[in-house]
């Protein structure tokens, strides 16, 4: 059953922010289709009234108290950053709202 179109793969790529070559699109389409076929098995399980498990073992989590710890030094913050300007992360312009690219 072919249910993943090339267009869908490209749109998933955009949503995931992944540049994909044509051959990658082709491979991904094939692989996702075959993986999704295996996923179909789940449809046969009767899950009526079954709670979705969002946290394993009903984990009881803890909270932290509102205490301040020392911040990372600015040099540590930027140690690995690809581009830095005036102690800010420098990125290509975020399009001003309203303008189309």
């Amino acid at each position: 059953m072919s249910r993943v179109t090339e267009e869908e793969i490209r749109s998933l790529g955009e949503l995931s922010r992944l540049a994909l070559s044509d051959s990658e699109v082709e491979t991904l389409k094939r692989d996702l289709e075959s993986i999704l076929e295996h996923m179909d098995a789940l449809a046969e399980v009767d899950t009526t009234g079954v709670q979705p498990m969002t946290h394993v073992l009903g984990t009881i989590g803890h909270l932290r108290s509102d205490e301040v710890c020392e911040s990372l030094a600015v040099e540590e913050v930027f140690a690995a950053s690809p581009e830095r300007t005036e102690d800010c992360f420098d990125v290509p312009a975020i399009l001003p709202p309203g303008s189309n690219k």
């Binding site: 909270l63 932290r64 301040v68 710890c69 913050v77 102690d87």
Partner: peptide, 29 residues
């Protein structure tokens, strides 16, 4: 646990979680 403060020098109030460094985790206040 980094501080909340208005008007501090840019990127002077961060920690691994705020920067989303790999391996960091959120724990709610």
């Amino acid at each position: 646990a980094s501080a909340v403060q208005y008007g501090a020098a840019p990127n002077s109030l961060t920690d691994p979680t705020v920067l989303a460094l790999p391996g960091s985790l959120p724990v709610f206040n």
